[in-house]
Design a protein around this nucleic acid. Sequence first.
DNA 1: CTCCGGGGCG
DNA 2: CGCCCCGGAG
Length: 348
Amino acid sequence: MVNFSQKLLKWYNINQRNLPWRATDNAYKIWLSEIILQQTRVQQGMPYYERFISEFHTIYDLAQASEDEVLKLWEGLGYYSRARNMHFTARYIVTELGGNFPDNYSDLLQLKGVGNYTAAAIASFAFKEPVAAVDGNVYRVLSRIFGIKDDISTNQAKKIFQSLANELIPDKNPDVFNQAMMDFGSMVCKPKQPLCQECFIQEECFAYRNNEIQNLPVKSKKVKVKKRFFHFLLLEDVKKNIIIEQRSSDDIWKNLYQFPIIETDNEAMETTIQSQFEEIFYNQKLIDFQELTDYSIKHQLTHQQLHIRFFKSQINHRAANAIVPEDVQKYAFPVPLKKFLEKYYHQS
DNA sequence: CTCCGGGGCG
DNA sequence: CGCCCCGGAG
């Protein structure tokens, strides 16, 4: 086991992934990539990274953008607070730090949207600080190889893994070690069906020797999923313009856009929805109110199961806050609404 | 269809 | 510690 780090580096030397943000030591680009990759697979994050970099070459460009622009570019990636925090932090660094990116672990940790993992990743990749970047891959790799059964959702376990990783990380090329751990975790020591047969540490791996691969890492989590019932109204005025609004409350999809909405606690009848919409638009007659039954969907979030239905109607005058349908592409919508729009305007 | 994986915030 | 999102695997 003493040779684990050396074997890992040898493996990495041959098998490393070629990722665009690894070809740079530009802290801004590394930070951007790490924020995008939080809770996100490389495959999905890659095109977003390319678009953000080409749209915002420097942190000044990102700081100058509006939040709406940033959210629009982030559209579809999920966990939108990452985008809001990233934008906030860009402005903070430009206005408060004179555009100088923090250059060490503890200063990086102060930034909004930057936690333990991301601070370590930036510190080691951009500034070669020997601090271990412990992400989900690393928990998995270390728990299996060393047989650590502490529940990784607890703070105590996180400290144990962090300090073990900090013992393993070499002073020389700590960035390479961190990359290697994560590549190994995602390519070989995978959550499901890990490639133990081609693993360099197989014979010494606790989980493999004890047939505990499926049991490690130990992770307790009991999320209770709440059901919510969303009813969106595609309301066209006489100009065929539609009404959208920005979500602002402290809820999912904050600051993204949507259609007028009625939310209920349970499955609701169409007539109930109609009368509730009529209350919202109390001074206007809703013409030809009907449900677009083909568009109903269930959308799963971590803690919520959304039952989404769509309705359409018209009003016989011109609405002040309506937009032309072609302009929906300027606004950031949650994925289910984005899919609705694509389907609706594609075929009608 | 359901479930799982992946960091940080308030 | 509850909550934030989506795509892909099963």
